[in-house]
Design a protein around this nucleic acid. Structure first.
Lengths: 328, 328
DNA sequence: TTGAAAGCGATACCAT
DNA sequence: ATGGTATCGCTTTCAA
């Protein structure tokens, strides 16, 4: 790989001039600039990113840590963050800690050494987040912590809308199929909002779980739902909701008629299954982009720990319907 | 951030010794080593990755370029590549070119400046691949090119198995729903194998498309399939196959009885839909890992352009069954 | 075993 | 407008 020296020699100028041609071309005389450019061209020169990084004190990289890169929910966030990073001339280092025995914290520390800032989708309890974010400039996704900027997907509206929706359909109670340990913020948050919304609407709330947030868990939970004679179910995630749908179908329960089911996330398949799944849409793309934008701001000096809150909304499809034997 | 100088001063040694303690601790006297370690500890020192990279001539990064990071097919590859990279002490830079107007080549060039090697899942026609891979050490995924190491997912077996399977069920013809322009290797490859397998088994082959490889395309294709009175369908991808399934269901066609449907990929939902989708499983995880491993080898000096070929296999589920009105 | 010093490749200040 | 040079933080000979 040619360096500034090679180009300088080829063009008969100093390395300083070569550097300027690539960094601030306007301060170089047109003829010189042209000479340097063609020298660089013939040599196939392009500036060494590492050397630039060392000199500038910026790697030009953002790091992103999530639980599972292959999970469509996280993958959507990754994609959005990557695109936004690139808009700012930055590249994205990705890693997941799901299948890795090592501590999430160790990974964050390791990554922090190679990037200008970190995007963290943590599964840690809120109390342990400060330590995580302490490794350098960081933005948390979907979980709040004092003094650390974060992007929240507010399930409050979505959940309120879901409960309103079910109540309007005549449901007097619902079963929540939990899908994450209550040490996680998102789990606590959803439960809390659900409790509030149910209380306000006079809807009785039953919680089952927590399960792992998988299709199979949904299948298992469905039998409990039937045993409880619930008329409405809200699941922690679409994957779980799809499991519920499947098992209810097998048991001869008509979803949308006998039992209503609501998911969370709005993954693509939710709209395609039969019956199509009513779900609370999570703004993953917006969240990934917002997080990257926030981090870039942070890196460039915005001291304040802004928190961006993105709303969720209920997408009504055919898995929800009037309570059976209702008065209307 | 403290540097070797700070630690050296604190420990009363030279910067060379500090460097050694982190790089080759065994050549440093035990007491000195201990002193340096505790100095580093109190200062919170850890080596600057950029400086190490500059000095070593290695960034410690691998780059991965795919069409769409949010697509579960690619996401699985990303996850596997990331894990394998980390096993070798490397981090993974990810980018996709799907939603980016700029040329894939430009992106590859840009990325090449910041990594030790590139993992490329290209959508370019085979003829233009050499240019792409020319940006530096590279490994191609799912597409071959002379002189460039690559990891191929061989659809030959899977397709042969699918045709055998359908023929055994009494099907005398099948419709292939194509999902990618025939400039792409994977499209050409699948078509070619399908033609060969059908010829060998005396199965009549009809091709429709190419469509975009989406659920909606599958929906559209399904009506064509019905019009042709096909008894068996092979789709380019599971997403398309799911679209076919859905539309056939809507039209009152019983999948697995009236019409058999086969997909490609084996994404998680394939096993969960009703009827469960018979599909050709693509070894994405193995491919991602193998590609990373190959690239690491390449970077460390293995000159040969090895090609790893991973087999595919047919996973039989309930979307395929005996031809209606068959003799058995 | 340890230290001094020469780079790695680029940037930017200070002269000219 | 251009060139010389110190510097970024680290690794690695070469000497001692």
């Amino acid at each position: 790989m040619p360096t500034v020296h090679d180009v300088a020699r080829e063009a008969g100028v100093s390395i300083a001039t070569v550097s300027r041609v690539f960094g601030r071309p306007e301060v170089v005389a047109a003829v010189t600039r042209q000479r340097v450019r063609s020298a660089a061209e013939t040599l196939g020169y392009s500036p060494n990113a590492t050397a630039q990084a060392l000199q500038r004190g910026r790697t030009g990289h953002l790091g992103l840590l999530v639980h599972d890169l292959a999970n469509p929910f996280f993958a959507t966030i990754v994609k959005a963050a990557q695109l936004e990073a690139r808009r700012h001339g930055l590249a994205l280092l990705c890693a997941d800690y799901g299948d890795f025995p090592t501590d999430e914290l160790a990974l964050a520390r390791d990554m922090a050494r190679q990037v200008d800032g970190l995007l963290l989708y943590s599964s840690r309890p809120p109390a342990n987040l400060a330590e995580l974010a302490d490794v350098g400039p960081a933005v948390l996704i979907d979980t709040p912590a004092d003094g650390v900027p974060s992007v929240l997907m507010s399930t409050a509206e979505g959940i309120a809308q879901a409960v309103d929706h079910l109540a309007a359909l005549g449901h007097r109670g619902l079963t929540y199929v939990d899908g994450a340990p209550d040490t996680m913020f998102s789990s606590l948050d959803r439960r809390r909002h659900l409790e509030g919304a149910c209380r306000r609407r006079g809807v009785a709330l039953t919680v089952v779980g927590p399960y792992l947030p998988t299709f199979e868990s949904g299948v298992r939970a469905a039998d409990l739902v039937v045993a409880q004679e619930a008329t409405a179910v809200v699941a922690f995630s679409d994957q779980m909701a799809l499991g519920v749908l499947r098992r209810l179908g097998e048991r001869g329960v008509r979803v949308g008629a006998d039992v209503s089911v609501v998911g969370v996330d709005d993954i693509w398949i939710a709209a395609q299954v039969t019956p199509a799944l009513t779900t609370i849409r999570m703004p993953c793309t917006a969240a990934g982009a917002a997080a990257a934008r926030l981090l870039v701001g942070r890196i460039e000096g915005d001291a304040e720990a802004t928190t961006v809150t993105l709303p969720t909304e209920l997408i009504v499809r055919s898995s929800t319907g009037p309570v059976p034997g209702g008065t209307r």
